[in-house]
């Protein structure tokens, strides 16, 4: 426990410190890379609520990631062109409003998907969440209004009061701030009564029902919260790339989010962060070395599953997994 807290603190401090060092050395690209890590870690932390605490293996979280991204893209486009949205509402280029919209949109989608999907379990749950994500993916590709497969460009990164978001460092701090908030939320949730019930449901559903708690409702709430956090990360990701496209909704993205969690350590607070650091750095380092980098990425992932159970955090902090 203590050792894991130390590892968590080191990971977070490392993520926060690295961009300052890079900025000082005149390497702004590494700030961008750290921002990418923070955003993917936030998305995976969202998934970790459903997957790590609730045992709900969602293979469709790209849907919420993409919905968040599209919320940002659509609002920003309407603000940029000064066209009203539905019902005469204006678009906006304020990040905070966009995050709220992303949370609302992802939450609504998760509520609908969860109501149907949570009736199933195990492999069926994995596949039905995939099915819903695929529906949204194909819808986004063939829907012409917001660019279809070509995606949607955000010409100017959205605004945050009191700072210039186009500066890599400013945007990193915003993303890192949200990641810390997300991690704090995850920690609070895990230690709350709700979190205890959720984890009890993962381990023993019957015992939970015996004490008069309906697992379905708890799981639905967890699924929606999980989607909301991933949705905010999606909005940030769109701002990072100044672009959103259906590939954010693809099943590869869902797979990648799961990979981040397993790589880091399932159900652990800093698991998604550790996973994102390792994954992004490997992708970056190998991509420059060989065009066959995906083969080596595959080998690395395989070795982690086979020989480093409990992921990176498990490797560093020991086996014991609480909760």
């Amino acid at each position: 426990m203590n050792r894991e807290t130390l590892v968590n603190a080191l990971l977070i401090l490392g993520l926060l410190a690295a961009p300052f060092a890079a900025d000082a050395m005149g390497e702004p690209f590494y700030v961008t890379l750290a921002t990418r890590i923070a955003i993917l870690a936030l998305a995976a932390t969202g998934l970790n609520i459903a997957l790590g605490l609730g045992g709900l293996v969602s293979f469709g979280h790209a849907a919420f990631f993409g919905i968040g991204g599209y919320a940002a893209g659509i609002l920003a486009t309407h603000a940029f062109n000064a066209e009203p949205l539905l019902f005469g509402l204006p678009g906006t280029n304020q990040m905070v409003s966009i995050w709220l919209a992303a949370v609302a949109a992802a939450g609504m989608a998760a509520l609908l998907i969860g109501l149907i999907s949570l009736r199933t379990s195990g492999v069926y749950f994995i596949m039905i969440t995939l099915a819903f994500a695929q529906m949204i993916y194909y819808f986004a590709i063939s829907w012409p209004a917001y660019g279809g497969e070509d995606g949607l460009s955000i010409y100017v990164r959205n605004a945050f009061p009191g700072t210039n978001t186009m500066r890599p460092m400013s945007f990193f701090l915003i993303a890192a701030g949200l990641l810390l908030a997300g991690l704090a939320f995850f920690a609070l949730l895990r230690n709350s009564r709700f979190g205890a019930a959720l984890q009890a449901g993962r381990q023993n559903e019957i015992r939970l029902a015996a004490v008069g708690i309906a697992p379905f409702r708890i799981r639905l709430v967890a699924f929606v919260l999980s989607a909301m956090m991933t949705g905010v990360a999606g909005a940030l990701f769109a701002d990072l790339n100044r672009f959103v496209s259906p590939s954010m909704l693809s099943w590869h993205m869902s797979g990648e989010l799961i990979v981040l969690i397993i790589l880091g350590g399932v159900g652990r607070l800093a698991g998604p962060l550790a996973g994102a650091i390792v994954y992004v750095l490997f992708e970056f380092a190998l991509g420059g070395v060989t065009e066959h980098w995906q083969l080596f990425l595959g080998l690395v992932l395989l070795c982690v599953v086979l020989f480093a159970r409990g992921g990176v955090v498990g490797l560093l902090a020991g086996r014991a997994r609480h909760g």
């Binding site: 590494y30 961008t32 890379l33 995606g151 890599p168 590869h252 970056f284 995906q294």
Partner: peptide
């Protein structure tokens, strides 16, 4: 790898780094 997000990341790297 025919991925838009990766293309953006590489473009950032090539410009900034």
């Amino acid at each position: 790898a025919q991925k838009p997000e990766l293309a953006v990341q590489i473009a950032d790297k090539m410009v900034q780094s």
